[in-house]
Nucleic acid binder design. Structure first.
Lengths: 185, 185
DNA sequence: GCTTATACGGAACGATGTTCCGCTTAGCAA
DNA sequence: TTGCTAAGCGGAACATCGTTCCGTATAAGC
């Protein structure tokens, strides 16, 4: 890959992160191009689909969440680790404005995004759930994928500027996990 | 109001319901206009904002939900009435494709829509919650607005074509209400 | 039938996504 | 250093869509 191509790709990613944070993932391509100091053609060459650009930006965040699950599991009691991880997830979606909408848009063009996000996060959450269930802190046999979908959905509206709201809804959902926990013992 | 205006308004509403169901609420205005057999100008005269059109369509559905709350409360045990009502809500959002996205878009133009929906449904839900809490079936002091927001969010993704998924997530949330119910007694 | 205010249709305008191609330049060889 | 070439670039061009506007058509009352 040519050096200038590499430079431009970095500039595009950096600009996209900024613009997406300010205007959401539907921001005009021209705006991103201008912020990166390149032409729109350059963006489309590197990212044929808009979702490719979004995916590239989100991938690292998602990976970080995956790793964080292991770190939390090692340093906290099972139930607490699970709660903390879910809370962090809410903050991620709330912060990365547009991630939520993109995930749930239903637009086929974004199909690969939820697939990747769920594919990465589900196993991480599964581990946390298993440990919490084994410790009797939550009910057993909670489907990780299902819980993850719910959590992502609840967190999405936080882009309205009310992360507090999302956190409270998440707490409500978490209580649902605790219901019937004793039966596990 | 002139007779032809009335006719056209009905035609527009009918066409919009069909087109929205097929393509979502972001469907091109021209498509709706063509389906209704009118010019786009006619639509914009009756509904200056896109959200006005959506609101008109949804209003009746929301009103129906409000009335249903009373009917359910009269014919079922408190906890069951609440569960049934929430389930019906999920079906509404799942069926009326685009309602969910419109509610959570965050676009200021849609501001009035969630205001109306929440304004109507919150009191209805409040009644069901109070009765269920008084009967000790769920924990007391659950904020109706908060629960409603969560329910609407969980239901939204059902437009993907998986109402089952939404219903399961809703069940999970409902269990959260039951957690700590005994403390109410 | 005549008048007039109401309502209509669709052209026109501006914004945006996406494609395409002539020009530029990095990387390399001599 | 110079020249070659293919990778890469920029932005004009095209298509689509939301929204506005105005000349024309017509419902309703006299």
């Amino acid at each position: 890959m040519r050096a200038d191509a590499r430079r431009n790709l970095d500039a595009v990613l950096k600009a996209a992160i900024t613009v997406f944070a300010e205007q959401g993932v539907d921001a005009p391509m021209r705006t991103i191009a201008a912020a990166a100091g390149v032409g729109v053609g350059t963006i489309y060459r590197h990212f044929p689909q808009r979702s490719d650009l979004i995916k590239a930006i989100i991938r690292r965040e998602v990976d970080a969440r995956t790793e964080r699950a292991a770190a939390l599991a090692a340093g906290h009691p099972p139930g607490e680790a699970l709660a903390l991880w879910l809370e962090g997830l809410v903050d991620l979606v709330a912060t990365k404005r547009g991630l939520g909408p993109a995930l749930h848009s239903g637009d086929p063009a974004y199909q690969s995004l939820p697939d990747y996000v769920l594919g990465q996060l589900t196993p991480a959450l599964e581990g946390l759930l298993d440990e919490a269930a084994a410790a009797g802190e939550i009910r057993p046999k909670t489907d990780a994928n299902e819980l993850l979908l719910a959590a992502l959905r609840l967190a999405s509206p936080a882009s309205d500027g009310k992360p507090e709201e999302a956190r409270r809804m998440m707490a409500l959902l978490f209580d649902g996990l605790r219901y019937g926990a004793k039966a596990a013992r």
